[in-house]
Amino acid sequence: MSNPDWLEHAARRGQSETWTLAFVFEQYRQLEGLSPDDLARELNCSRDTLLWMSLCRKPEGDTRREQVTAIAERHGVTPLSLARILRHVEIMATLAMSTRDEQTGTSRIQLAARDRIDRGDDDEPTP
């Protein structure tokens, strides 16, 4: 059976809803510089499966693990790969928030980097 023509639109619209897997997948793609095909390959599924999965709610709460498993089972992906992506995006989002310094507008990593430069142990940037 072919996919409905609204599927891609619904998945794309879901990228602006923070509680969707569409949002999580989009953030992960942006962070890792992946194309949709790359992401589908990482999850070992088709692009269509990725779109259907994008419509699901982001697993959370006490039943988080069960929900990850249920989504993975329905869509034929491994729970571990899905859980890994979820965790990575959550860590990065937390990291982004923790780097904000509301009072000075300077991030924690920036301050740490400055300390390091002041100490004179900043030679060459990573190639």
Partner: peptide
């Protein structure tokens, strides 16, 4: 923060 990156990189 311990990476050899510039402030610009951070």
């Amino acid at each position: 923060a311990q990476q050899p990156l510039t402030e610009t990189d951070h």
